[in-house]
Computed example of a mutant assay.
Amino acid sequence: MITPQSGPATDAGAQPDAFTLSYAGFQPVEEGLRETLTSTGNGYLGTRGAAEWEESDGVHYPGT
C-alpha cells in the first residue's frame, strides 16, 4: 500500500509528495515479489530489498 504523507507541493521548487510503502502481514509465497518490488539498481549494480536479518532460503533471496 502506498500512502501519501503530505499535501500537494505548492512551490515551483518544492519536493514532490513523500510516500510510505508498507506491507501488512507475512505471506511466504509473496515474499519474493515484495523483495523484487523493493529492490534498488542503477543498471550496473542491483540489491534486492530483503530484510537485512534474513538468510537465503526457500522464502527469502537477499543479494547484490
Rank of each mutant, 00 (worst) to 15 (best):
M1Q: 08
M1H: 14
I2M: 10
T3Q: 11
P4S: 11
P4N: 06
P4H: 05
P4F: 11
Q5A: 11
Q5C: 10
Q5F: 05
S6G: 04
S6F: 01
S6Y: 00
G7N: 05
G7V: 04
P8G: 00
A9S: 13
A9M: 08
T10R: 11
T10C: 03
T10V: 14
D11E: 14
D11Q: 13
D11Y: 12
A12Q: 08
A12V: 15
A12K: 07
G13M: 09
G13V: 06
G13L: 14
A14K: 06
A14I: 04
A14Q: 11
Q15W: 11
Q15A: 02
Q15H: 10
Q15R: 13
P16Q: 07
D17I: 15
A18R: 02
A18N: 02
F19Y: 15
F19E: 13
F19G: 14
T20G: 03
L21C: 12
L21A: 14
L21V: 15
S22E: 14
S22A: 09
S22L: 08
Y23R: 02
A24R: 12
A24D: 09
G25I: 07
G25F: 01
Q27N: 15
Q27F: 06
Q27T: 15
Q27D: 12
P28V: 05
P28L: 07
P28F: 01
V29T: 12
V29W: 13
V29M: 08
V29P: 04
E30T: 11
E30H: 05
E31F: 01
G32P: 00
G32R: 12
L33E: 12
L33Y: 13
L33R: 08
L33N: 08
R34G: 01
E35I: 11
E35S: 03
E35D: 08
T36C: 04
L37Y: 04
T38F: 02
T38R: 11
S39Y: 00
S39I: 02
S39F: 00
T40R: 14
T40L: 10
T40E: 10
G41D: 07
G41K: 10
G41P: 00
N42H: 09
N42Y: 11
N42V: 00
G43L: 01
G43M: 04
Y44C: 04
Y44E: 05
L45I: 07
L45Y: 01
L45K: 13
L45E: 01
G46K: 08
G46H: 08
G46Y: 06
G46T: 14
T47E: 11
T47A: 04
R48I: 02
R48C: 03
R48Q: 08
G49F: 04
A50P: 01
A51E: 04
A51R: 04
E52D: 11
E52V: 03
E52M: 02
E52A: 15
W53E: 06
W53G: 04
W53R: 01
E54Q: 15
E54L: 01
E55T: 15
E55R: 13
E55K: 15
S56R: 10
S56W: 10
D57P: 06
D57F: 01
G58W: 13
G58Y: 03
V59N: 01
V59D: 03
V59G: 00
V59I: 15
H60E: 02
H60I: 01
Y61K: 09
Y61L: 12
P62E: 03
P62K: 02
P62Y: 11
G63V: 07
G63N: 05
G63M: 03
T64E: 14
T64L: 00
